Measured scan of single mutants.
Amino acid sequence: VTLFVASYDYEARTEDDLSFHKGEKFQILNSSEGDWWEARSLTTGETGYIPSNYVAPV
């Protein structure tokens, strides 16, 4: 399981994006799509795309 933590807050801009807060942890589901990764929030359980430059490895 690949875990990352949010370095910043992010507000979703499309329905496919995932909003999150600094400190929130994610399981990365797919990182092969470039700068936007499909992730599941371990806080909310929601799945969506997050900007990879807003998160760091745990």
Rank of each mutant, 00 (worst) to 15 (best):
Gln27Gly: 02
Asp35Ala: 09
Thr14Ala: 12
Arg13Pro: 07
Val5Ile: 12
Ser32Ile: 10
Asn53Tyr: 11
Ser31Gln: 13
Tyr49Arg: 14
Leu42Asn: 04
Phe4Arg: 01
Asn53Ser: 14
Gly48Cys: 04
Val55Ile: 10
Arg13Phe: 08
His21Asn: 11
Tyr10Cys: 05
Pro57Phe: 07
Trp36Arg: 14
His21Ile: 12
Thr43Asn: 08
His21Trp: 08
Ser31Ala: 13
Glu38Gly: 02
Lys22Phe: 05
Gln27Asn: 06
Val55His: 03
Thr47Tyr: 08
Glu33Gly: 13
Val55Glu: 03
Phe26Asn: 00
Pro51Asn: 09
Lys25Glu: 09
Asn30Asp: 12
Ala56Val: 15
Phe4Trp: 15
Gln27Cys: 13
Ala6Ser: 05
Glu11Gln: 12
Gly23Asn: 05
Glu33Tyr: 11
Tyr49Gln: 08
Thr47Met: 09
Ala6Lys: 00
Tyr8Asn: 08
Phe20Gln: 00
Ser7Asp: 08
Arg13Met: 11
Asp17Pro: 00
Trp36Pro: 03
Val5Leu: 06
Ala6His: 00
Leu42Val: 08
His21Cys: 13
Lys22Ala: 11
Lys25Arg: 11
Gly23Arg: 00
Phe20Asn: 01
Asp35Thr: 09
Leu3Asn: 05
Ser41Arg: 11
Ser31Asn: 12
Ala56His: 14
Thr47Gln: 09
Tyr8Glu: 10
Arg13Tyr: 07
Tyr49Thr: 07
Ala56Asn: 10
Trp36Thr: 06
Glu38Ala: 06
Ile50Trp: 00
Ala39Trp: 02
Glu38Lys: 10
His21Glu: 09
Lys22Met: 08
Arg40Asn: 05
Ala56Leu: 13
Phe4Asp: 00
Ser41Ala: 06
Tyr10Thr: 00
Gly23Trp: 04
Ser19Met: 03
Ile28Ser: 01
Pro51Glu: 03
Ala12Cys: 06
Leu3Arg: 04
Ala56Cys: 14
Asp9Val: 03
Ala12Ile: 01
Tyr54Pro: 03
Asn30Arg: 07
Gly34Trp: 09
Glu11Pro: 04
Ala56Ile: 15
Thr44Glu: 01
Ser31Thr: 13
Ser52Ala: 13
Leu18Ser: 00
Ser31Asp: 13
Asp9Lys: 04
Val1Ile: 13
His21Thr: 13
Ser32Asp: 11
Glu46Asn: 11
Ala12Glu: 03
Thr14Leu: 09
Glu11Asp: 09
Ser41Gln: 05
Glu24Ile: 02
Thr43His: 10
Gly45Tyr: 06
Thr47Asn: 05
Glu33His: 14
Glu24Asp: 14
Ala39His: 02
Asp16Lys: 15
Phe26Gly: 00
Leu29Thr: 06
Gly48Val: 03
Thr44Ile: 00
Phe4His: 05
Ser41Gly: 03
Asp9Trp: 05
Trp37Met: 05
Ser19Asn: 06
Ala12Val: 01
Thr2Pro: 11
Pro51Ser: 05
Glu15Thr: 12
Thr14Gln: 11
Arg40Phe: 11
Pro57Trp: 06
Thr47His: 07
Tyr8Asp: 09
Asp16Ser: 14
Asn30Cys: 08
Ala56Gln: 15
Gly34Arg: 12
Val55Leu: 12
Tyr8Ser: 10
Trp37Cys: 04
Ser19Trp: 02
Glu38Ile: 15
Val1Met: 13
Ala39Tyr: 03
Ser31Arg: 12
Glu33Ile: 11
Ser7Phe: 14
Asp16Thr: 14
Val1Glu: 12
Gly48Met: 03
Lys25Phe: 15
Asp9Gln: 05
Thr47Pro: 01
Ser7Glu: 14
Pro57Ser: 08
Gly45Asp: 05
Leu18His: 02
Gly48Lys: 02
Val58Lys: 04
Tyr10Ser: 01
Ala12Phe: 02
Ala12Asn: 05
Ala56Ser: 13
Gly34Pro: 15
Glu15Asn: 12
Arg13Cys: 13
Ala39Val: 14
Ile50Arg: 00
Glu24Val: 03
Val5Cys: 08
Thr43Leu: 13
Val5Gly: 02
Ser52His: 07
Phe26Pro: 01
Ala39Thr: 02
Gly34Ile: 11
Gly45Asn: 08
Asp17Ser: 14
Val5Pro: 00
Leu42Pro: 04
Trp37Val: 05
Asp35Gln: 09
Ala39Cys: 05
Leu18Cys: 04
Trp36Met: 11
Glu15Met: 10
Asp9Ile: 02
Val1Thr: 12
Thr44Trp: 03
Glu38His: 13
Asn53Trp: 15
Phe4Cys: 09
His21Met: 12
Lys25Ala: 08
Leu29Phe: 06
Tyr49Trp: 15
Gly34Lys: 13
Asn53Lys: 13
Thr14Cys: 15
Thr14Asn: 14
Leu29Glu: 05
Asp17His: 15
Asp9Asn: 08
Val55Thr: 04
Asn30Pro: 04
Glu46Arg: 14
Ser31Tyr: 13
Arg13Asn: 09
Pro57Cys: 07
Val1Tyr: 14
Tyr49Val: 07
Pro57Val: 08
Asp16Pro: 04
Leu18Gln: 02
Ile28Gln: 01
Lys22Ser: 07
Val5Gln: 09
Ser52Trp: 08
His21Tyr: 11
Thr47Ser: 09
Lys22Thr: 07
Thr44Val: 01
Asp9Gly: 06
Gly48Ile: 04
Gly45Pro: 00
Asp16Val: 13
Ala6Met: 01
Ala6Asp: 01
Glu24Trp: 07
Phe26Gln: 01
Val58Phe: 12
Tyr49Glu: 02
Val58Leu: 13
Tyr10Gln: 01
Ala12Pro: 04
Ser32Val: 10
Glu24Ser: 04
Thr14Trp: 13
Lys22Asp: 02
Asp9Leu: 03
Leu18Arg: 01
Ala12Met: 04
Ser32Thr: 12
Arg40Ser: 06
Ser19Phe: 03
Ser31Pro: 09
Leu18Glu: 00
His21Ala: 11
Leu29Asp: 04
Trp37Pro: 00
Thr47Ala: 07
Arg13Gly: 08
Asn30Glu: 07
Tyr8Lys: 12
Asn53His: 12
Ser31Met: 15
Leu18Pro: 00
Tyr8Trp: 12
Tyr49Ala: 05
Glu33Pro: 09
Pro57Arg: 06
Ser31Lys: 13
Asp17Trp: 11
Trp36Lys: 10
His21Gly: 07
Val58His: 08
Glu38Leu: 15
Asp17Glu: 15
Arg13Thr: 12
Ser32Trp: 10
Asp17Met: 14
Gly45Val: 02
Ser19Tyr: 03
Arg13Trp: 07
